[in-house]
């Protein structure tokens, strides 16, 4: 090429073309990467939602099943036991004077056995479905739960709520918190070897927090998750929380023991009552 002017232009055009290609390449990589990432994220979201739905359904059906069992226990066995008690009472009255001492003893024993069984059935049905929770809310339910446990006298359980009037929350949220509290306290009793358990409930800007602290031997949650020792309890807490976007944090306080802190964002209270089955509405009438 003799003409340097021509050469200059040719070079210029070639270089610019090459540069344009480079620019396109870079933009393409950026664009494509971004799009693929978004797609991936969408798929992940869908999967997560699906899993959550599955879990939710599983837990819901568990509650429904509990309710069904409680109702069956109450309606069938409870009624039969009541009738048995009635018949026994009648029999006792009819044979009142002509019984020997031995017969009298057996009669009284049967009566007290039936009575005890009735109590047991009532306790079991109540354990299966937390009626107090549904009727009076979280504060009452937790207090009742503690009260039942307090009979064991070398264990002090204290409960403290942030405010006097704890507003009612969505049914699902209350139930979740209640079940978590139950599991945490049960764990403390079962494993911690402790003398004090402290439960705290607080609302902080759209977040409900539940803290259960004990003064027992403590544990390392990270190790627990990895090791095969873990039971269903801690896993269950996590899956219950996952449904409601909650989090749980296990700490090791300096003074020893273990502390768990669960947090759930406040949900709008749903208008519809979840379950149509309500065996305990009639309970008062019955008794």
């Amino acid at each position: 090429m003799q003409n340097s002017e021509e050469l200059k232009w040719a070079l210029l055009v070639a270089s610019l073309a090459m540069l344009t290609m480079a620019f396109c390449m870079i933009s393409f990589v950026m664009y494509y990467q971004k799009r693929r990432f978004e797609e991936e994220k969408k798929i992940n979201d869908i999967e997560k939602n699906y899993n959550r739905l599955l879990l939710d359904t599983a837990l819901n059906s568990e509650e429904t099943e509990r309710r069904r069992i409680a109702q069956d226990l109450h309606d069938d066995i409870g009624t039969m036991l009541s009738l048995t008690k009635l018949s026994l009472n009648q029999l006792s009255k009819m044979t009142g004077s002509e019984r020997s001492e031995k017969e009298d003893q057996i009669m009284r024993k049967s009566q007290s056995l039936v009575e005890e069984t009735i109590l047991h059935v009532r306790r079991i049905t109540r354990d299966l479905v937390p009626t107090t929770l549904e009727r009076f809310g979280l504060l009452e339910a937790i207090e009742e739960f503690i009260h039942k446990l307090a009979e064991d006298n070398n264990l002090t359980i204290s409960f403290h709520a942030d405010m006097e009037e704890f507003p009612r929350q969505a049914q699902k949220l209350e139930l979740t918190l209640y079940r978590i509290m139950q599991e945490l306290v049960n764990n403390a009793i079962k494993h911690a070897n402790c003398t004090r358990i402290e439960i705290r409930l607080e609302i902080k800007e759209e977040l409900i927090g539940l803290r259960v602290t004990d003064n027992g031997i403590g544990f390392d949650p990270e190790k627990m998750k990895e090791s095969s020792m873990a039971g269903l309890g801690l896993l269950g807490i996590e899956s219950r929380l996952a449904i409601l976007n909650g989090t749980v944090l296990y700490e090791k306080p300096e003074k020893g023991g273990a502390s768990a802190f669960a947090q759930i964002p406040v949900m709008p209270v749903a208008e519809v009552k979840l379950e149509p089955l309500h065996p305990f509405r009639r309970e008062r009438v019955n008794v």
Partner: peptide
């Protein structure tokens, strides 16, 4: 990528133009 893209066509031309006596102005 940008630097080498801009250089790739000009580099061989240097061989011919960047000489002491015959400096073709690019």
């Amino acid at each position: 990528l940008l630097y080498y893209s801009s250089f790739i066509f000009i580099a061989p031309v240097f061989h011919y133009t960047a000489t002491w006596n015959n400096s073709v102005d690019l």
